[in-house]
Amino acid sequence: MALTTKGNLGPGRTEQSAFDAVHSAKRKDLWFAAGGLFVLAIAMSLLFTLIGDLIIRGTQYIDYDFMTSYPSRLPERAGILSAWVGSLLVMLVTAFLAVPVGIAAGLYLEEYARKGWFSDFIEINVSNLAGVPSIIYGLLALGMFVYGMGLGQTILVAGMTLALLILPIVIVSTREAVRSIPQIVKEGAYGIGADQWQVMWNYIIPAARPGIMTGAIVGLSRAIGETAPLITIGALTFIAFLPSPPVTGEFPFISFAWLHDGFTVLPIQMFNWVSRPQPEFHIAAAATGVVLIALTFSLNGIAIWIRYRLRKQHRN
């Protein structure tokens, strides 16, 4: 028998039409993959051009003085100290409020709430809230926190506003993470005689932790870049002082007075500088953008790292 060395396999005893169908499907594979690659290349090059431009313009401007100076009307003296401290403190409040409440709500909805029209109604609304424009949250906060509760335009209110904004994200990702746990694991846990609380605490939360943490951090990295709701509640755009320090010299050494101080955040500072006519301020804005992007990326990096670590740990 002669050995065929040609690479192409003939149809053999397969119907010619089946053979042709596979070939035409393969052509579609190729076209689809090529189209996808093309679109991906455009998107990536746009993104890298934007970020690259920002970095090239901004990076040289970032130095110790820039990080430790207050904004100034002279571009060469202007810095972002009050902005990054403000961003940090607002994020702290947001995380403290949104993460525990969001996780608890997600766990409750997924594990405890009785399934019915009411839980469906809540589920639809939570998912919809995740898509509500952020400025709407700003209006809500302005009406409720600033005027209604008389809390003023403070770090606390900013944290509360952003917490409301990312709460749906945390809730939805917690529910997704809990839902992705195989039923067989839950049944195994109930099978050893565990109560619902024990199952949730000892089996569901550890298994869902990577997903829950990822959701929380993705939520925070969205909050850190939000500008509109904070402008709406009346964040200041020019601040030449720091909030009162959280640690004090006298008893009880911890102070929460900073919660009630005015503030600005990185994106607002950036927005402010972009709208100035002097080109030097535009470079300062680019530099602020670089700091903001670095913060966002490192938050996302932490999320990826946690997910990787916990997944590995959980398997063992």
């Binding site: 049944e187 195994g188 846990a189 959980h314 398997r315």
Partner: peptide, 19 residues
């Protein structure tokens, strides 16, 4: 049901050890 499961143990079709 939790008390029932404390008294009656179960092994499932697919091995499902905890992680």
């Amino acid at each position: 049901p939790v008390i029932v499961r404390l008294r009656v143990g179960m092994v499932f079709q697919k091995p499902n050890p905890f992680p």
